[in-house]
Amino acid sequence: MTAILTDPDEALAGVEDGSTVLIGGFGMAGMPVTLIDALIRQGAKDLTVVSNNAGNGDTGLAALLAAGRVRKMICSFPRQSDSWVFDGLYRAGEIELEVVPQGTLAERMRAAGAGIGAFYCPTGAGTPLAEGKETRTIDGRDHVLEYPIKGDVALIAAHAGDRLGNLVYRKTARNFGPVMATAAALTIAQVSHVVEVGDLDPETVVTPCVYVDRILDTKAGEAA
């Protein structure tokens, strides 16, 4: 049963120290900023964060990093023109970094959500990112053994959700959201619009409600 919440702090209740947190978004598109701000207030520390980037500017994920709450970052592209918070922590040796090719990052989470134990992937074979990993030649091509990334918590943003937890997204803000929703024990989605059951065309639902535990209605929060 999906909980529909209007209080961001209630939405983040129960996140434990040492959790692996999957955070959606590509740049700022699909970034669950309200949930990240609530995670900062919530206080869980020693986190492993999985996200495509490692924060932009001083808000959202960058603010979580700046608060010293992240032990390890797993991402494809930490270095950006405005990733100064991460850059500083990394250069000071205060954060671990695991760089994963972007498609492998997505697929490792897909595997976690789909109950796949591991998979052989050609991406990265023969490169420094395959060092220390088992490699097998399949059909004449080298493949690298990759393991799932399972989250304790996923924080994602969607366009609309119904009261059962079905989600639809908007344009390229979809990005990692549907994959992360499947890969975590507790999936929390912030949505711009909460609609009644039956209002979403079943043919267009992207994330079925089975994957979603809590919905934060960000519009309700603005009105309050």
């Binding site: 494809s76 270095r79 970094l97 760089v99 090719p101 972007q102 991406t123």
Partner: peptide
């Protein structure tokens, strides 16, 4: 700071 993005996936894909 290493950052690969989608480059490896594109290169082999």
């Amino acid at each position: 700071i290493p950052a690969v993005g989608g480059a490896m996936d594109l290169a082999i894909g």
